[in-house]
Design a protein around this nucleic acid. Sequence first.
DNA 1: ATATTTACTGACTATTAGTCAGTTGTTGTG
DNA 2: CACAACAACTGACTAATAGTCAGTAAATAT
Lengths: 218, 218
Amino acid sequence: MGVQERREREKEQRRNDILDAAEQVFFEKGLSLSTMDDVAEAAELSKGTLYLYFNSKQELYLGIHQRGFAKMHEMFTTAAGMHKQGVDKIRAIGNAYYEFSKKYPDYYKAIMYFEGSVLDFTSDSEMIELYHRDGKQVMQFVQNVLSEGIDDGTIVTDFQVERLAFILWGQISGVIQIISKISQHPDKQIQFNPFDLFDDYMQFMGKLLINPGKEDKS
Amino acid sequence: MGVQERREREKEQRRNDILDAAEQVFFEKGLSLSTMDDVAEAAELSKGTLYLYFNSKQELYLGIHQRGFAKMHEMFTTAAGMHKQGVDKIRAIGNAYYEFSKKYPDYYKAIMYFEGSVLDFTSDSEMIELYHRDGKQVMQFVQNVLSEGIDDGTIVTDFQVERLAFILWGQISGVIQIISKISQHPDKQIQFNPFDLFDDYMQFMGKLLINPGKEDKS
DNA sequence: ATATTTACTGACTATTAGTCAGTTGTTGTG
DNA sequence: CACAACAACTGACTAATAGTCAGTAAATAT
């Protein structure tokens, strides 16, 4: 009996339709100015139905966050897949992260939003769990690629891979965050192109990880 | 005639009293669960009065953000003041940043909150301006200390000071952010003490900036 | 004594997240 | 087919709360 399965597919589809509508509305007006009625109208559903699929406005936004994270992760695997050596994969991931923030600013915004407001969540712990699961998955991926680099000898470090992964991830997130901030709010006092800052950062980091003997010349 | 002056002092005092009350309430219950009526009650004032001093709940929270930033900046100058050499001052600032995040987690939380939600601000541009002013001030301070280090020869770098300041600030912010996140939401998969991660980071960075010939042995 | 300015009040309004009793349509059963 | 059981959906309603504003009180100036 395929009825059950079809029902589940349709339910999944509805969930996606709602997320599509929510993206449309949230990305257009910003989260705080968007109402659940706006989303309901865009989805051509009643507000009540939204709450059958998402328990709160914030959880709906978390759904968008998850889409963003999935997209980012996909860009990471694609980028890493284009290289053989560990160090090149790590570089490619760094670049992909930055590209993601430029190509999907609204998803990036959603990620930053939760980064800054999970600390205020007193609510639903299931939601928080879901949020952290995404983060861990990416950390694990970075860790694996670092391990590859250490194994193939293109990355040299005194640190445990696990720690290094956290440090690198934290660093690059912070650098991209500040670049987004500058780009969003330009300041005539700043003499450089914010985009160049990222190249500087990558160059800066390169020195710390690369084993010059093993690296391909480019 | 000192009446005008006294009035201004009293007004400043009221503003501070309101901020005290707001801290008490927001830090206790978290921003989203706190109401303006709660704050009014804690301040022993009517809600209307709050709005004579702050235009919105968010602006009130921004007032707390500013107090936090001032505290942080103060810790930076104190920390830097305890050293002679540029590189030591920079290290001291890095440590002070981390100490700040641990000693004043609620102020730190406020800073993170705005970091993640300015991107959503469609509102009051005066408020955004105020927010960015704080950030610039700290960046300027870091830049000055870096310049000192370059001048006294304890810091060596190929980059422009301005860019280096942004990179370092972004990096360290990101690392502290991820440490806070891990600390707040411990994970048995993580084998290390999140606090050690910061030491690792500082060690990691040290290698990039220090001129070994010039450094004091410790 | 009286006018003017300043600080404050709290009842009120508007908005909106979230609920729930009821409707509609689909699937399974005798 | 008739009818029961179930699932998906609806939208009017409630509760909570940010923000307002006409009115009061108290200090200051004339």
